[in-house]
Design a protein around this nucleic acid. Structure first.
Lengths: 135, 135
DNA sequence: CTACTTGCAAACACTTTGCGACGTG
DNA sequence: CACGTCGCAAAGTGTTTGCAAGTAG
């Protein structure tokens, strides 16, 4: 894999942030130092970084993928209302990977524990319009 | 929630299948008994069923959401190459929800353990073009 | 030098939404 | 018979891709 300025900046940003950015957020952020970078380049490089294991793609909370350079064993709490993603420690043994590999033949690159729910702030908002939740 | 023919058929299909269908697959399938149903209706009803807890939306393997009427505690293995989703039993204690609720204030609707990897069939295919994986 | 990578713009794929008609409770 | 739901089509949103020009090794 060739080392370009674009790729460096993207990884640098991913490693520095804790917000589980979307591709769009990565694009906006990297653009401050590389104004002419394009979305295509961001998407292409994110994919390459994930294939190399330098980042992971999180499929949480719907349409948008999020990226994280910390591949350690923590779970993600996702608010289905505002899209907020918070980290949470979970008592999940990630060495369980090996057992899954033996049982299924899959090559396992990573695992993730995800909680879908509603964050405290959005719970308050929903109480005001709770009619919708029971319709 | 009003009970319409469309909604009934969608839930019926979800409960009968084990393939974690995408919205498109639900649409194609329900269309055999309700030929004039539209995608909009499928999407709207899937959302309502999820809000009522009669189905869950799985965010696995990328762009497309998948749906499952079995909300029990099992994990999902997803092939990043062909999109196959397989079930796998996991030693994850789902009563851990309560602890998360207390610690974070989130209202937790469900949790899921996901494994991202490559299925046996795609591993064979990739060996033939493995140059790409190391570029 | 050569082949991978970039920026751009157009194409794609999936999902959501506005509207008038329909049908359930 | 009122109001939620439907079918349709158009619009949105996020992502991928073809191409010519640029650049790392």
């Amino acid at each position: 894999m060739r080392c370009t300025r674009q790729k460096e900046k993207i990884l640098e940003y991913l490693q520095a942030t804790t917000v589980h950015p979307t591709a769009e957020q990565v694009y906006e952020s990297v653009r401050s130092s590389l104004p002419r970078i394009s979305r295509g380049t961001v998407y292409r490089n994110l994919e390459k970084l994930c294939r190399k294991g330098e980042a992971i793609e999180l499929y949480i909370g719907g349409r948008v993928s999020r990226y994280d350079a910390r591949t350690g064993g923590h779970g993600h709490l996702c608010c289905r209302s505002c899209g907020l993603v918070a980290d949470v420690d979970v008592p999940f043994d990630h060495t369980f990977h090996q057992e899954v590999v033996e049982r299924t033949g899959f090559k396992v690159n990573g695992s993730a524990v995800q909680f879908n729910g509603v964050c405290p702030a959005c719970q308050k908002k929903e109480q005001k319009v709770k009619k919708e939740a029971t319709q």
